[in-house]
Structures are given as structure tokens and as C-alpha cells.
Design a protein around this nucleic acid. Structure first.
Lengths: 115, 115
DNA sequence: TTGACATACAACCGATTGGTTGTATGTTTT
DNA sequence: AAAACATACAACCAATCGGTTGTATGTCAA
């Protein structure tokens, strides 16, 4: 189902962002390319842990990797960030609709109730 | 520490959004007020589960409740949604900065490397 | 005041998460 | 060819998560 796909993608995106180490990694790779070990050097945890965080971000589509010799260079995917922003914009739009409905109510126009 | 507070808040916000039932609840309460049991009627799970989802959204600041008799009416907090949007805008800004830097490189101006 | 309704929360359970160590597989350097 | 480096991934573990049922408390209606 198409809805499920969209929701599964949202699950992955928000889950990926729900960890501060991953958000920090994402900030770094948005600025420019970094190898996995280069990223790992910034954190007080094992290389394997950082590599798993990178994998989570990659599965969510928030970063991509490119091979360069024995290194894997990661860079941020701004389109994925924008797709999240548009989900939030959709939420805000629902809220805006509520306000419009309250306004309609306050103008005492009974026709507005139909739709 | 202030940074930790901000990050803890981001943790809570993204975690709250990383579940499709909670995102659905949030959409409903953005449109208008709903009692907890009114919300629960929409899902194929126990009342207690829905009540826990509402509590997660409330702790993240994404919704608030107001008593009305024996009911608790929940409504979405658009400011929280906007605060997430601004975190994403910050990420996009980092990306934009990278592009600016690449542009500077392409114009072959060696001074740009200093900063 | 009793009974039905709306909510909150504790206790429990299986699945997932975020961390670990260890091992395997390429790639570069010597 | 051997040593060192960069990455990937499996297996494991404690903690958290998303669900459950059961119980307690407050509010409304008879």
C-alpha cells in the first residue's frame, strides 16, 4: 500500500533523527564529506557503534556514501531533510485549517458548517 | 547544560514523531480538540495504549490537554511543530553553506580557504 | 448514593535499540 | 607478500519501547 510506504519512510526518518549522535553526524555530513572513521574520531564510543549510526542514517536516506579508495565518504542528502520539513508543513496546514474554521464560526455564518 | 536541554528536547520531539499512531493522533488534534477516548476509538488497540501515546506527545510538548468535566480534551501545539521545522532549516542551512564553499572554490579564489 | 464513564498508572512481556567485542573482507603501503 | 588501515557485520547484553491487563480515582447521571 502506498500510504504504508510513506508512513514506513516517515518512521525511518524520524527514528533516525531521534538520537543526538545521529543528529550530530548528520550536521557534519551536511557541511561536507567525511569518512566513517573520520566521523568516529569525534565520539566517545566504538567505531562499530558509529558505523551502525551511519547505517541507520543511510537506510533512512538522510546520507549517501561514495567509495574513495579504502574509505567510504558520507555526505548528507538535503532532499530527505526537505521531505521531513514538508511533513511538518502538512501538520501546520491542518492547524491553519482549524483556525480558519474557528474564524468562520465567529463570523456566525451557518453555511460554513456544511463542508 | 543548555545544549543538553536543547538536545533532550529534540530527542523527545523526534522520538514522539517516530511512530505512525502518534503521528496520526497528532494530525487529529492539530485539526481540533479530541478527548482521549474519542481518539482511542479510531485505533485497533487498547485505551491504555492510546493514552500512553497521548502522554508521549504531551511530554514532548506536541499537544496539551484541558479538562472539560470528566473528559480531557487534547489539542495540538503548533509551536512545537515549528521548533522542529527550524531544526531542519538549520540542517539545510549547513548544506547551503557547503554549496557556497564549493562555489567559492570553483571561482578559483585562494583567499576563501582561510576561514 | 450507586453505577457507568473517562482517565491515569503500575506491572508485565516480547521486540527493538544502542552499545559492546570479535571476526571477515577489501585496499593501500612497504 | 606482509602489515596496517577502513569498513562491514554477526553475536551478545542491558535498557527502552509498544503493547497488554488490572486497578485506582474522579466525574457525571439515575
Amino acid at each position: 500500500m502506498a500510504v504504508t510506504d510513506h508512513e514506513a519512510r516517515a518512521d525511518a526518518l524520524f527514528h533516525a533523527l531521534a538520537d543526538r549522535t545521529r543528529r550530530d553526524i548528520l550536521r557534519r555530513v551536511m557541511v561536507g564529506e567525511h569518512s566513517v572513521s573520520g566521523l568516529a574520531a569525534n565520539y566517545d564510543m566504538s567505531f562499530a557503534s558509529v558505523q551502525k549510526h551511519v547505517a541507520v542514517l543511510e537506510r533512512a536516506g538522510l546520507l549517501s556514501k561514495r567509495r574513495n579508495g579504502r574509505e567510504q565518504l558520507a555526505h548528507g542528502e538535503v532532499e530527505a531533510v526537505r521531505s521531513i520539513a514538508s511533513m511538518l508543513a502538512e501538520l501546520e496546514e491542518l492547524w491553519r485549517g482549524r483556525i480558519a474554521r474557528i474564524d468562520a464560526l465567529l463570523t456566525h455564518d451557518p453555511e460554513q458548517h456544511q463542508e
